[in-house]
Nucleic acid binder design. Sequence first.
DNA 1: TTTAAAATGTGATTAAAATCATATTTTAAA
DNA 2: TTTAAAATATGATTTTAATCACATTTTAAA
Lengths: 197, 197
Amino acid sequence: MFVDQDILITWGAIAKKYKKGEFIFHESEMPQYFHQIISGRVKMYNTNEDGKEFTQAEFTAGESFGEPPLFIEQAYPATAIASEDTVILKIKKMRFLELMDEYPLLQKKIIQLFAKRIYSKAITVREIVNSSPESRIIAFLISFKKKNNKDHEEIEIPYTRQEIANFVGLRVETVIRTLHKMQEKQTVKILHRKLYF
Amino acid sequence: MFVDQDILITWGAIAKKYKKGEFIFHESEMPQYFHQIISGRVKMYNTNEDGKEFTQAEFTAGESFGEPPLFIEQAYPATAIASEDTVILKIKKMRFLELMDEYPLLQKKIIQLFAKRIYSKAITVREIVNSSPESRIIAFLISFKKKNNKDHEEIEIPYTRQEIANFVGLRVETVIRTLHKMQEKQTVKILHRKLYF
DNA sequence: TTTAAAATGTGATTAAAATCATATTTTAAA
DNA sequence: TTTAAAATATGATTTTAATCACATTTTAAA
């Protein structure tokens, strides 16, 4: 968890429910709030002219999202949507910035949070620009396991082929075909269409 | 400038000269120092198996680089090289972290710095994943002008076709051909092979 | 100043992923 | 429980940037 929920509430945050599929904010919009997830799941993504989607990141309970534009007077570079029914603590931008000023520990925390984000984005671009579909998928699977502290065990990947495609910037068909090849090479397991890695 | 040079020196930083083409650090290496450029230019990049290069970012006088891994005990995700003769102030990681603790204003500054980085990386991935060569090149040119506060005037772009290709993840030939098309459409100007936008 | 290396340019060919079309299976909603 | 929508699957075709090969021009180094 980034900010303690009680502190957020004391400072004026309110919880808001979002139904699955509801938007939290849109690309190009100026940020008004700091958001932290109580429960559920949020996806930040972009869509291009042809409707192709790219998933920038996904956030779950305890995580905050969409903070960078709060600090630099910028519009959101992507849209946030509830991937499932989600409850979010929201606090006004100014109140949040005041809160940050009050708690030096929070500043340290957000520096680390941002450092991780920059790091992971750097890895993502590197893989997308320089690698084959297979490497891109593997890099995604590895980072997903790492994020969930399941580094060293085989887990079921809770994403559809389409979702994976959106994360790595490929088309569904390409992901399906690549996963089949990877299964043959034993890089991944597929049982009853479910993916294990 | 990120950190005042006198402060850095007071805290034990030393200036080091790098010849053009000299490495400052390598991908996968654990960070030992905080780096800030006094003069010159530094490129951070990745190379894939086939030798194709991707430029993650470029930094000039007054800018620091390679800071995120200092905060998260991670190896560098890319290699840093001097693009020209460069002088860099270096200070030991621990001393830098102590310095950060001492100056709350520095913490605020690095939060903003990181916020900008995240923002710009998000834009970069979005463009690379979702756009045509032309859009990728335009996005790069726009962000270059913005970084140099030349938003609203036409400037000479100080990069070779190859360098642009490395920034946007395309091949030189593709960049050359795309720039020609863009010239016909008057999106860019090319005079004596120099590019204006 | 010469000369080698780097950068630009261009045509031809190839490769790889996107696209299109359509079938089947699974999942979730009415 | 039925039914519609979403997800998976697969073959055929197309598109587009990469690759290859090589010529010319510019730049920088000896």
